[in-house]
Design a binder for these strands. Structure first.
Lengths: 223, 223
DNA sequence: GATTGTTAGATTGGATCCAATCGACATTCA
DNA sequence: TGAATGTCGATTGGATCCAATCTAACAATC
């Protein structure tokens, strides 16, 4: 027997408008790499694949443009933005700033239950092999620590750039294999102790080592 | 005699597409307060005022939505996002994170000429009375200090949130009058000395006092 | 042989038209 | 009387159509 809430839940996962649907799906496709960087996004073609007209496609592309995921050139169309070392460094710098603030504001409000959940996510990461799922778990871990900040815009922006980082994560994992679980644990320990300085230092280490790994990957590839 | 670059410059300021034109103008109108928070943005009405069809309006609104300037509700339309103390605090937290990173990356690359220009802007602020121009000058001062960071995305995001802060600045100035010129000068001095810690501390003070002033304004208004 | 002009095809930008949805008010029924 | 239902106008979401612009290939000119 399906309860009413089940039906609502199932319906709730659907999208209220075609534009929402297209935007969410395209975003997913870009971030998972299904649409590689540089791919031209032909409106007519996409309209055919999504089985909608060109208009919702265009509105969705405008939103993705504002989020920095696609490049728009008048009368030439849209392409998936290229990823480069420069972009990756940019992303790391942005996350460094945002995540530090999120952690700073969240730490005083974190409960033991929050930290327990974060530790569970860490354990899940240890058991996981699939790369794309690891990205999601990593994101969940970080956001769990920041969720108590009570600043919705900051959190949304932080998550947006964590999601964007998934595009680089697969490169980074290809060389390194590990993804800073040591730092993850250090962050939790510092949060339990209420030690803001230590928590921020662990976060900084975490991002720095990830960044260095990525730089190494790009250098080895160009050589 | 007008040089070629003059012509290019003048032409470059025009808009290549109606959507660009509408988006830029609406954004300006929202940030300057010409369109107050909560204003419903009727597509047909705007289409008439801009003398275009509803479509460029809609695409522009989608972009502004992605930038957090308007709220979209399916089948109900768009309104200018409300400003509240919570939003202002959110904005301050975001800027705190982004500007600190921008300053950190820019400081080592700043030249004496950069700092001279920043000081000129400070002097201009002293001479200026008009509120909306002060917002622009304040923005210019900050971005001058950050411009050497060499991280285009970080800088774009920083500027975007500095621009958004203009909406709160007019409230803040209404009570305080001054806008942290002391901290501005402290930031320059620290940059000249190459003292990163002092520069970041000055920036932090700058944002904190502005935030406290705004909190005071909202509290006095609700009382 | 290199540059410039021309033309055809593809693709996007914008206008207009129709359908779906929402809010408010009137109506009905318990 | 008050809650639920039905209808209507306003407004938006989406489809289709036309015009403007870009790219590429080829012809013409110097």
């Amino acid at each position: 027997m399906t309860s009413l809430s089940d039906v609502i839940e199932a319906g709730g996962r659907r999208f209220r408008t075609a534009t929402e649907y297209v935007a969410a799906t395209l975003k997913q496709a870009i971030l998972t790499g299904a649409l590689p960087p540089g791919t031209p996004l032909r409106q007519e073609d996409l309209a055919g694949r999504f089985d909608v007209s060109r208009m919702p496609i265009r509105e969705a592309l405008r939103q993705l443009e504002a989020q920095g995921l696609v490049d728009f050139e008048p009368h030439r169309g849209a392409i998936v933005v290229e990823i480069s070392l420069a972009d990756a460094l940019d992303n790391f710098a942005i996350r460094g700033g945002l995540e530090a603030q999120a952690l700073r504001h969240s730490l005083p409000n974190l409960t033991a239950a929050d930290l327990d959940r974060a530790e569970e996510v860490i354990a899940e990461i240890d058991r996981e092999d699939d790369v794309s799922r690891m990205g999601e778990l990593n994101r969940r871990f970080h956001m769990t620590l920041y969720a108590a900040a009570g600043l919705p815009r900051l959190l949304a922006l932080t998550e947006q750039h964590l999601v964007a980082a998934d595009r680089y994560l697969r490169f980074h994992l290809a060389t390194d294999g590990d993804m800073g679980q040591v730092d993850h644990r250090a962050m939790i320990a510092a949060c339990r102790a209420g030690d803001q300085v230590a928590a921020l230092a662990a976060l900084d280490r975490h991002l720095s080592t990830a960044r260095d790994g990525l730089v190494g990957f790009f250098e080895s590839r160009s050589a």
